[in-house]
Structure formats: structure tokens, C-alpha cells
Design a protein around this nucleic acid. Sequence first.
RNA 1: CGGAACGUAGCGCAGUCUGGUAGCGCACUUGUCUGGGGGACAAGUGGUCGGAGGUUCAAAUCCUCUCGUUCCGACCA
Length: 571
Amino acid sequence: MRYSQSLIPTLKETPAEAEVVSHRLLLRGGYIRKLTAGIYSYLPLGLAAIRKVEQIVREEMNRAGAQELLMPMVQPADLWRETGRYEKYGPELLRFHDRHDRESCLGPTHEEVITDLARREIRSYRDMGKNLYQIQTKFRDEIRPRFGLMRGREFIMKDAYSFDVDDAQSEKCYQKMFEAYTRIFKRCGLDFRPVEADSGTIGGSFSHEFMVLADTGEDTLAICSSCDYAANMEKAAVKLPVADDSALLDLEKVETPGKRKVAAVCEFMDIVPRELVKTLVFLADGQAVAVLVRGDREVEEVKLKNHLGVVEVEMADDKQVYDATGVPTGYLGPVGITVKLVVDQEVAAMKNFTVGANEKNYHMKNVNIGRDFEAVSVADLRQITKDDPCPQCGEPLILREGIEVGHIFKLGTGYSKAMKAFYQDSDGQEKPMVMGCYGIGVSRIVAAAIEQNHDENGMIFPMPLAPVQVILLNLGIKDEQITKMADSLYEELMARGVEVLLDDRDERPGFKFKDADLLGIPLRVTVGKRFSKDGIIELRTRRDGAIEELQPEALAARIVALIDAEITAAQ
RNA sequence: CGGAACGUAGCGCAGUCUGGUAGCGCACUUGUCUGGGGGACAAGUGGUCGGAGGUUCAAAUCCUCUCGUUCCGACCA
């Protein structure tokens, strides 16, 4: 590729819209351009990087026995009604009517389409054990797209779906995918961790996320400092606390005029937040539910949602709280409350705690479960903290930010039952197919790789993801000898299968160096004065800036060796 | 959708409070010089000031509405 013929519009200044480093550098490097909110064009270099990821994904999926196919992006609403998701999915699903007024949507994921295909085409247990995948543009009408390729509305995803005869086979496939994913992210040169995850709206019984560790990540991970435990914070199990066996004290009502916040109440009553219990009201699919957690804890909404078995929970506002309970916020408590009450396990282990009295300007102390009120249910409902022990081994946990680049689910038979995807087993019985689904955010991987690999001068691509492996700078466009050498090296490298970008623009050396750094291409070859004077070609690595001086004849072989070494190292 | 900010040349911004001439840097065009870390000089091109309506002799500037973008929250690959 010749720079002069390509479209690589680098920017000296950072566009104001870009906040995170990958977004800034992708724009500055001329890899992407925004069309509208959350929707980007991939320019030649951006596309080249994406193709690299796709290729790795393809190779590993195929190696794991999966088959590639391609499904439609436009999907009929009726298919989505079969699983109930047309109603459930929410405004993230972009819906529209075609010219015949048929309801349609743009595929944000493909469980319905693939299950429809499977139920039509697969009859016998002999045809089961299939894993089908595609790499395709998805559309999710995100409420708030942000961070460039990290959370677009339109993005490239690899999605795979497996169909097995029973749980044991499905489990094997899940394991295989777990291994394939580990290989994929390793080959991409990413620093990542697989973590236990919530299965979200896609549904299913069990799942892992693959997280790239980066400060700009939107998820928080709980990672054990000692054993192999790692989980998304929203899923991370809090260890069951030891029950307090103090004697029960007498219930006491205390006047707390104007003291609504935990801090104010504690100060007024001369207690600490861990002796107080908050009563928070959530709307669970519209129904008010009160949740008790210790004063210094936060409710984990995902845990609450799963515990209640509802689609959505949100914190009620002051008015909704008053409407549901008749008590102003700040004075709510479990004693005599009228709405459904669920209790965090930590609170269930407490004795003689302080709560709101369900009456303005009053709190109660020495409250106890069982004696003063009954809980509808007790569960792990709070957010884990960095001070919690590992739920597996009890050693300290570390909390880190991560970018979700892959997610695998055991789906079970939810979709197959809803859509009547049955096969006939060897015993002649009709049985539901056991499904799994496995996603990778292809375009997001490129962003994640940059978040992990950059410096003040620009991107630093790991060799396996680099859009091209070498940038060849001709620093003497008007010098016949230099240009001749640069062109011949360009030809020679390409002949040896090396991907090269030849910077043949009539620009000053400094300008080309800056662009080369910004673009993040792993190897840089310079043909300039050093060559015309001493016959020396310079080879520099982007990551550590190390320079080797070589004779032109030795260059190609050296480059091939470096590339091979880096690619093998990542495998 | 809730909270906040911002829309002025391709990009980054000033000008808006206090109404009157649209400006700076980069980029772009032409020329000369220059040529190893985003060069210098000279001459240029490019604007319905997001859009619509209003107030006024006069609106980028004041008022109303609207569209868009970004940031914080809920969603997710």
C-alpha cells in the first residue's frame, strides 16, 4: 500500500468529541470517521485492523469445529414475538415497517434467526452437535453510545450458536468455546481475564465474560489476589457473614428531627453506618419492593433483579417511594412496612440495628429480624467491595476495571422450547435442543487493544492486530537513489509476504516520523540520508524505539524473522 | 429517558455577557527556499455563525421553539 494512494487522514489536533484514548487515536490516526452518533466508517487502516481480528477469530472458531454462515440483518417481528423478546427487548431494538407495513427490526443478536434455521433444518440427533457462527454488523440502538468503537450503535460482532442433544454435550461445547476464546484473545495480544458473569437479557443459566483489563473499562471486576477466582462485580458473590449472637435489646423509638441521610442519622444517634440498616425502595417491573442493606453498603441491582426474577429494576424516586409506602424518604424502615420486603444476607446476620420508623422524624433502634418484622426473602443483594474476602478462598480481592470483549452463555432450552426447536433422539423421543451462544465484539477488540497499547505519540499495535506490519519511510522523494532503494525494498518485502505501507508522500522527515508513530505500526524502516551517505537502512520498533542499522540486503530477512517471532509469541 | 455542557471555515478555538466590520491557529491552494522528529517566507481559497421564528434601523450576540453533539446515570459485544 502506498500512502499517497491510500486514505489515511491523520489529524494533528484531537477532535473535541473524543474522550477516551482509543477513540482519540483512532480519529487522529485516520482509522475511523463518525457518520452520526455511535456509527462510524472504517477507513482503510481501521478496516485492515478489523480484518486482522476477524481472521484470528475465524481461524480459532474453525479450529474448534464451528462453521461460518451469514444471517440477515433485517428480521421479521413475528420471529421475535415467538420468544417474547419483541416486547421485552426494549427500545434498543430498532423497529420499523417495510413498504408492505410488515413489522421488522434490525438484528441486535441472532438467537431467533438461528433457532428458526435449526428447527427447520435439523431433525435427528445424528445432525446435532452443531456450532454455527457469523461475523456481521449488529445494530443496537444504545441509549448512550460513547467512546468511539467501544460502544457504538453499529458494531461488528462475531456471534456463534451451538445446538446439542443434552446438557453434557452442551457443556463440552461451552468448554471448547472457553478455550477457543482464550486462544483468540491471547493471539490478539491482549491482557485479559475470563470472569463469571451475569447472563443478562440474552438469558440462560451460566456465563463467562472475557475482560480486557483497562482503566477506561465500563465494568468492574473482582479478582482474587490468591486463587483463580474472578467475577464481574455485579455477579461476585459476597461471603456469608458470621451471625451476631448478641442478646436482643429492647426496641426503642428515637426522635431524629430532619435527619434523613445515613451520615446525619449516625452522627445524631452516635452510631456508625455499619450499625444502621438502609431501607431502599426499587421498582421491579413497576412493582415497589423494599430492600434492606447495611448503612455503608450499596445494593447491586443485577443481583436484586435476578433474585426477584424480573426484567428491570430501578431505584424509586422520592415521590414513588411516598406513593408506595406513605413514608417520606429518610424515615423508611422494615417494621410495619406495607410493600414486599427483601433482606440482604448481611443484614439477616445483624442484631440490634437501627432503622427508620416509618414515621417522619423518627428512627428505631435495637430492631431485630424475627422479633420486630419478617423478611419475605433473604439473599446476597449488595455490591461487593474491595474489603470483602474472595468467596472461594477467603483471601483479599482486588477490584479492577475491564472492557468486555467476549461473552459466552449456556442458554439451555429456553429458546428451543419457545420456538419449538426439537430433534428426534435415538430413543424416538422429541427433545428440545440444548443451546449455547458465544459473542465477541470484533470492532471493540481494536479499541481495547489501543487502550492497552499506546503512548504519548500514538497507538502501538501488537503485531497480530496491526493493520500493516511495516511502515517504510522514503525520506528523499526527490532523491533518485533513495527513492529507488525505498521502492525496491517495498517490492521485496511484499514479495516475501510482509504487509507494508510505503510513505511516498512529499513531506518533511519529521512529519513522516510523527505520522508513523501515531499510526502505531510495529516496525518502521527508514531510507534517507543515512542510506545515500553510508548505505545504511534503519529498522525501528514502535514499542521500545530500538533502532537497528542494517545493510539493505539484510533487511527483509530480519523483518520476516521479527514478525514471525512476535506472532508466534502471541500464540 | 433523568442531570450537565456545547454547536462560529475541514479540525481546534476566540468573539456572545455589553447588538453595528466574522476573527486566530492548524489544514488546504500557488510560488520560492528547505529536507532526520508535525519547517520558513509570500500570496490565496474557504463561513446561510446548527435550523426556524421573533425583537430591533441593525442579531453570531437578545427572546422562543427545534435539531444535533458530548459528558455523568440505567443498557451491553
